[in-house]
Simulated assay, not measured.
Amino acid sequence: MGSRGQSPPQWNHTTLVEFILLGFSDVPDLQGFLFGLFLIIYLIILMGNILIIVIIKIDPSLQTPMYFFLGNFSSLEICYVSVTVPRLLVDLCRQNRSISFLACATQMYFFLMFGATECFILTAMAYDRYVAICHPLLYPLVMNSRLCVRLAAGCWGSGIPVHIGFTSQVFSLPFCASNQLNHFFCDVPPVLKLACGDTFTTEMLVYVVAILVVTVPFMLILGSYVNIISTILRLPSATGRAKAFSTCSSHLTVVALFFGSGIITYMRPKSSHSVGMDKFLSLFYTIITPMFNPIIYCLRNKDFMVALRKLLLKWSVL
């Protein structure tokens, strides 16, 4: 990244029209293995989330706000991983890993938008659990279908204008000299490393957006679960406590995995960034966590497992 005191005439300007995604080119012997591994993970994510969506749609017992948001979350996960993984798979099979400015900006925009939507959807799911456990008598009245649709629409739509502006800000920076992006997709930190001149304003904008999109939703979820856990602990029945914990534990696990890696990536000081750590964390929240989400939600949810067994029995009869 260029020094902050330089004036524009001193830069060695080159009009860049594309980046080169280095990805995992530093381990050429592992290209075939990585392709197979990421392809399997991608198929697991697709099949797992499609299965969740299908079961929620066809099982009458799952027509509740909790599963409505889970269906939205599964649809979002398919979109989220499809922004980065197909491109990564193609790059692992070819020598030319160039990506145009427009394609890079588009990938960054959709990645950030779907990531923000995921933060908001997880917050809406936490609110649903908060009302269900802390105010069970008001639950049918509060979490009506109109509110659920509005919450979901707000989650999907609220990240669009923010990240159009943010992506435009990043790509309006001057890029000079190297066009080699030492990453497997167009994420914010590696792109900013190639920018010239004063990037302080953009870096501050990264923190502001991260606070609004990641930290605030995380704190709201944390607040919800403090109330949820204190309410559960006051339940007189051990069976009731176990059931309440089981409906919340899967969501809390997903929240910890997703927000934990996101906060570490975008909120830690720039001086602590390293290429290896950035790639590992990015793999974690772009591929690994989405792979575990269907498994966590399916295996830890008794109602869902019952619905899955019913579906499998129907298929076996046909």
Rank of each mutant, 00 (worst) to 15 (best):
I295F: 10
I229M: 04
I121D: 10
G5M: 15
G23K: 00
G2Q: 08
S224R: 05
F24C: 06
P294K: 13
I221Q: 12
G157H: 10
I56P: 00
M66F: 14
F218W: 14
S98R: 00
L252G: 00
S75R: 06
T265V: 09
I53N: 01
L283K: 12
F114T: 01
I40M: 13
L192K: 01
S61T: 15
I53M: 04
Y127C: 04
F171L: 07
Y67S: 02
F218C: 13
P60L: 13
L173N: 01
P161F: 09
I121S: 11
H273A: 14
I160P: 04
V275T: 08
V214I: 08
I20Y: 05
S25K: 04
C155G: 03
L312M: 09
L299Y: 05
L70T: 07
W11E: 11
L313T: 04
N96E: 00
S261P: 01
R300C: 10
L70D: 13
H13L: 14
I55D: 02
M219F: 12
C176D: 06
P28H: 10
L22P: 02
L89T: 03
L141M: 10
K310S: 13
L257Q: 04
F120C: 07
I53T: 01
V83I: 14
C93R: 01
L39S: 12
H273F: 12
I264D: 10
L70C: 12
A116P: 02
N144V: 05
M305W: 02
W315Q: 13
G32S: 12
A244E: 00
P86I: 13
I160R: 11
I50H: 06
I99W: 01
H183A: 09
L76K: 02
E77H: 14
H135Q: 07
G71F: 11
S7E: 13
I41V: 14
G5H: 09
S237F: 11
K314T: 15
M291G: 06
T253P: 00
G240Q: 04
T167Q: 03
L281T: 10
I44F: 13
P28C: 15
S145W: 05
K270L: 09
S158L: 08
G276V: 13
C104R: 02
G115D: 03
I229C: 03
A195E: 02
C196E: 02
L76F: 05
V188P: 02
I53F: 04
T289R: 07
P65F: 08
T247W: 05
F114D: 04
R87N: 08
I211D: 07
P190V: 15
L173F: 04
T202S: 08
D59S: 15
D278F: 08
I41L: 12
V27D: 09
L205P: 04
S272H: 14
L30C: 08
C119I: 05
N179G: 03
G36S: 09
Q10I: 07
L257F: 10
L220W: 11
P136Y: 12
T84Y: 07
S145C: 05
I78P: 00
L233V: 12
D128M: 02
Y225K: 01
L205S: 06
N12G: 09
P60Y: 13
I228G: 00
V54G: 10
T117C: 09
Y207Q: 07
A177H: 05
S7A: 08
H251T: 00
F304S: 04
I264S: 13
P65I: 06
T215H: 10
D59Y: 07
H135W: 14
S98V: 00
T265A: 09
R234L: 11
L37A: 08
S271Q: 11
G5W: 14
A126R: 00
L89D: 03
S172V: 06
